[in-house]
Simulated scan of single mutants.
Amino acid sequence: MDYLAATAEKKYLMYISQNYSYAILRPLQQEILAHGGEVKWFLEGDEVNPDFLHQEEQRLMSLNDVKEWQPDIVYLPGNIVPNFIPGKKVKVFHGFNSGKRVNNGLDNHFKIRDCFDLYCTQGPSTTTTFTELAQKHGYFQVKETGWPTLDPYFSEVENNPYEDKQDPRKTLLICSTFSRRISLAPKLYEQIKAFSEQGKWRILMQFHPKMPSELVAQYKALQNENLTFVETDNVLPLLKAADVMLCDTSSILLMFILQRKPVVTFCNQNPDEHLVDITDADKIEQAIDYALTEPDELMAKIEHFCQQLHPYQDGLSSQRVLAASNELLLSNPALKPKPRNFIRNLKMRKKLNYWRW
């Protein structure tokens, strides 16, 4: 059966709670609309800015509106969706597994929260574990599709606002996660300040949206002709504009490395051979210089890692996610009922102030 053709006249809800989810789901939205489906958005909470919605994008303003609309499929980059939302729930992930969230030996990337009917995984390094979990639990399916977010990544970006073709210097992108324990931002300020003053590289900086405001202000104050601080809901053009990245354990480094470009990390929690990991702040500059030479041994290790993380470079991951979602909807597989999770859903009702049954 042509499951893409089955999109016509079906309803697809984009359920988001963070600004970065717009860029994650828009390639999928484009594919749905191209195949005759209908898309609407629901924005949960106050951490997602409705001003980022495009003029032509349709928003459902309340949970009553969602229930009345009756979506067939609900897409989530996030971790939790209440069970009173109609439709099959499809997890598309908000990033790659960086290994930074480990509690009591359990990697939170693989935590099953009993919310989803389908997990659309990004590559072999996550598919294997989720498939084992699907066999164990029995109430969800797993399909390896690639990540829709990256579909535009494998096409040319016209008029990239972060490129400067008149500047012959290499471009260094500095990114950091928000957790003070593992963030490079509080630890490397003096080194980055020196980089911004010496002008050896053209520097772009971007932080996780939950970064403490005082750190953001501190780094914004460094801006000059050598360093630009960027705030955006779409990091893909930013990633494509750089030659090398300096990062910590943020999952954004995994998106960057898929370009087959080197990454220097500072005190990465899971350092491996595809990274140039440094624990001495005074050796950061030397490590960046080394990475920019793109040594053959390092680049071979990067290629092997990318094949496990996300082997798809065809820009068709959205098509695969949509086809897998429609197959789930139409084939109605014999899955066990999901756990009721009464307490969690009661908490969600309280959080959303929604008591209609």
Score class of each variant (00 low, 15 high):
135 Q>Y: 12
71 P>V: 13
97 N>I: 05
25 L>A: 07
185 A>Q: 11
227 L>I: 12
205 M>W: 02
184 L>A: 12
48 V>I: 15
193 K>M: 08
19 N>L: 10
336 K>V: 11
230 V>I: 13
214 E>P: 01
347 K>G: 01
318 S>I: 00
215 L>S: 00
193 K>E: 14
172 L>Y: 11
284 I>M: 15
6 A>T: 07
308 Q>V: 07
155 S>G: 12
247 C>K: 02
357 W>I: 05
299 M>N: 03
275 L>C: 02
252 I>Y: 01
330 L>C: 06
81 V>E: 09
58 Q>K: 14
301 K>D: 01
185 A>M: 11
89 K>L: 08
26 R>H: 09
63 L>R: 00
314 D>P: 02
244 V>Q: 00
310 H>R: 00
314 D>T: 03
351 K>E: 08
176 S>L: 10
238 L>D: 05
104 N>T: 08
114 D>A: 14
141 Q>A: 11
117 D>P: 12
134 A>Q: 13
215 L>F: 10
190 E>L: 07
157 V>S: 13
178 F>Q: 14
277 D>E: 05
200 K>S: 11
62 S>W: 09
106 L>K: 15
62 S>T: 15
313 Q>W: 06
4 L>K: 02
68 E>P: 03
6 A>R: 01
170 K>E: 14
333 P>T: 09
236 L>P: 06
99 G>R: 05
339 P>M: 11
292 L>C: 04
255 M>T: 08
